[in-house]
Nucleic acid binder design. Structure first.
Length: 623
RNA sequence: GCAUCCGUAGCUCAGUUGGAUAGAGUGUCAGUUUCCGAAACUGAAGGUCACAGGUUCGAUCCCUGUCGGGUGCACCA
């Protein structure tokens, strides 16, 4: 069993072969651009006709004559200058989506084919400071992509390449020790930003302090040989890092980001490998010394511009740079972790650096022909004037503040909508909505363009937003709940006997005692005994969209574009709403159709929930 | 200066190796609740795809140029 688009492609390729059309001619099978053009369309015939100097409509007709319709296709039509429109057979489509379920990941497993190892570098905050809004996109986009790859059956290795190295840390440790000595140090370092600011002030105003700070950096680098002071400085460094990582983890927990301690691969991890990076480059005669710095220069055309800027791997004072670390990281990710695709979810402004890095990495021999290093670039987050997102005074906005603000606003809205709810339910919903809104607003836009952040727009609760998708889901769940009679307060339900023939199950996902998180599911027996029947147009449309889930995931993963998945889920929800408005379920004309529609609704809910889950967005059962 | 990304409806955005009459949402206006959740659905209006050439059956997409904007370019990360 394969995706419908793949099956159609094979069918048409066979027809092409019978007409002696070269194997490398593209079929160009795509989803129909408009409903009146059917379900799929073939765009390739016109190009081929031109190449072979044939009349495109005649060729299209010949192709159609050679395609075996049954059982997938109900009708083929020639349209315009030589398009072929494909209308799928209702029975076939119905059977196809009947086979979509959790076990085969709604068809996504079909794409597994070759399992790849995907290394994803994302989030990667600097531990010297608290996470700020600039870290949001990398964190959210990277986490989504990791989930998608995993869901499709690939092996995913997350790499949180946190910044725990560099001159700032000498300064921070010096300040930390100073505070400990005068007894004013707080061990949790509750406000890292403030701590950094004060350390910087000390660094700038006091030359002795600055010298100490610089000395600590050197000590840190060689601490194993620096005796007890080295050990002391090293230990403070470790404890500072841990404090900072706790801040990060707090954010990850709030945002439901899957990163854990296991995924942390700090810059310092590569320290011992840096000498060797230089050796490798030198052995390959790639290094030139310029102004005392070790550089790699590029040949004309190698970078398609910007070749005059060298890639510096060692400063004149002997120190290494992030460019050196990044090379060591390539070696590790490709040769230790065995990554087939190595993704860097990093700001687009670092595009030039990655362009250079990947070329040098290849020259150094760290990559193979089969490895793909990819800069998954994203644009800058701006305010509503299109300017970088800053506080009124021009400072950086802490990520935690942005999250809290979104929750506060969501709470207000929930209170207006559901004044009769209890406090804990409202709070729970507000959290899910706020986090979902933040993530969806980001993920639903093409990651490569700059993105205007607006609380008002993302919390608008209508249109292409997380709340709309969540609403579609709750509407279906509400419908399914109606099909059950409550037997006890929360956990077990019976089907109403005249509706469904078998037992259903309901269970609680979370520990909180609330119907918000009580999910109703239809059990396997019902699936087995119910046949989907597509009679109405809106049912056909919905079914087609359900069938295309795995194609959507495939494209999302291929291009690393989460907005493909968002667009898909939005369209699915719209299709469902239209179906829901035009086809009565509870009052369907027959039991057969009623049960079929219940299954359609159920399947829709499950795919919305799964899709949102891949975006990192939770669902609720009521809202 | 070189490089790079962008310019699509009032606003926010889609547009999958070049495909049919360029699509959504929002906002505006007009409809739809004795019926499964109106946080919904239906319809109308809204466009010189920045501009000018070129390539071809066909260009928002590819090429050239112009205008306007963002970003990056030697020892920070």
């Amino acid at each position: 069993m394969q995706t419908i688009s793949k099956i159609l492609e094979i069918k048409f390729r066979r027809a092409f072969n019978q007409l002696d059309i070269p194997e490398d001619s593209p079929i160009l099978l795509v989803e129909a651009s408009k409903p009146e053009f059917g379900d799929f369309q073939i765009n390739g015939v016109m190009g081929i006709a031109k190449k072979l100097k044939l009349n495109p409509r005649d060729l299209a007709q010949k192709v159609i004559d050679n395609v075996e319709l049954s059982p997938e296709i109900s009708k083929l039509e020639i349209a315009g200058p030589g398009f072929i429109n494909i209308i799928l057979d209702d029975n076939y489509l119905a059977t196809y989506i009947s086979n979509l379920n959790h076990e085969n990941r709604f068809g996504a497993q079909l794409q597994m084919g070759k399992t790849k190892t995907v290394v994803i570098d994302y989030s990667s905050p600097n531990l010297a400071k608290e996470m700020h809004v600039g870290h949001l996109r990398s964190t959210v986009i990277g986490d989504c992509l990791a989930s998608v790859f995993e869901y499709m059956g690939h092996k995913v290795i997350r790499q949180n390449h946190v910044g725990d190295w560099g001159t700032q840390f000498g300064m921070l440790i010096a300040y930390m020790i100073e505070r400990i000595d005068d007894g004013t140090f707080e061990h949790d370092i509750s406000d890292l930003e403030e701590f950094y600011r004060k350390a910087k002030v000390r660094f700038d105003e006091d030359a002795t302090f600055a010298d100490t700070a610089r000395r600590y950096v050197v000590i840190l680098q060689n601490w194993k040989n620096e005796g007890t002071e080295g050990e002391k400085v090293h230990n403070y460094w470790v404890s500072f890092k841990n404090a900072s990582l706790e801040h990060c983890q707090e954010i990850y927990n709030k945002l439901k980001i899957k990163l854990t301690h296991e995924d942390i691969a700090p810059e310092s991890m590569y320290n011992d490998a840096l000498d060797n990076v230089i050796n490798v480059l030198e052995n390959k005669h790639l290094i030139n010394v310029s102004n005392g710095a070790k550089c790699i220069f590029f040949a004309d055309g190698e970078l398609s511009g910007g070749e005059t800027t060298p890639y510096i791997v060692q400063k004149q004072d002997g120190g290494y740079l992030y460019s050196t670390t990044d090379l060591a990281a390539i070696d590790y990710r490709v040769n230790q972790l065995k990554g087939d695709r190595v993704l860097y979810v990093v700001d687009a402004r670092q595009g030039f650096h990655f362009k250079q890095l990947f070329i040098v990495g290849e020259k150094a021999g760290y990559t193979t022909k089969d490895t793909s290093l990819e800069h998954v670039a994203f644009g800058t987050m701006t305010n509503e004037d299109g300017k970088p997102f800053k506080t009124r005074t021009g400072g950086t906005v802490k990520l935690i503040e942005l999250i809290n603000e979104a929750v506060i606003r969501a709470k207000k809205i929930v209170l207006e909508r559901n004044p009769d709810w209890n406090e804990s339910d409202r709070e729970y919903l507000a959290n899910v909505l706020a986090i979902g809104a933040i993530k969806y607003a980001d993920l639903s836009k093409n990651r490569e363009s700059d993105y205007i952040f607006s609380f008002d727009k993302m919390l608008a609760f209508n249109g292409n937003t997380a709340p709309y998708l969540m609403y579609a889901y709750t509407r279906i769940q509400s419908l399914l709940r109606k099909l059950y009679l409550a037997r006890s307060s929360f956990d077990v339900f019976d089907f109403a006997p005249d509706v469904l023939p078998v037992h259903g199950v309901a269970y609680q996902k979370h520990q909180i005692s609330s119907s918000l998180s009580m999910e109703v599911r239809i059990d396997e027996e019902f699936f087995k005994q119910t046949k989907i029947k597509l009679t109405e147009k809106s049912e056909h449309k919905l079914a087609l969209q359900l069938a295309n889930f795995s194609d959507c995931l495939y494209m999302t993963a291929k291009e690393c574009y989460p907005h493909y998945l968002c667009q898909y889920l939005y369209n699915l929800s719209v299709n469902f709403m239209q179906f829901y408005e035009s086809c009565s379920i509870l009052r369907a004309e027959s039991m057969e159709i009623k049960n079929s529609r219940i299954l359609l609704a159920h399947l829709t809910a499950q795919i919305i929930k799964t899709g949102l889950g891949l975006l990192g967005i939770e669902t609720v059962e009521r809202m």
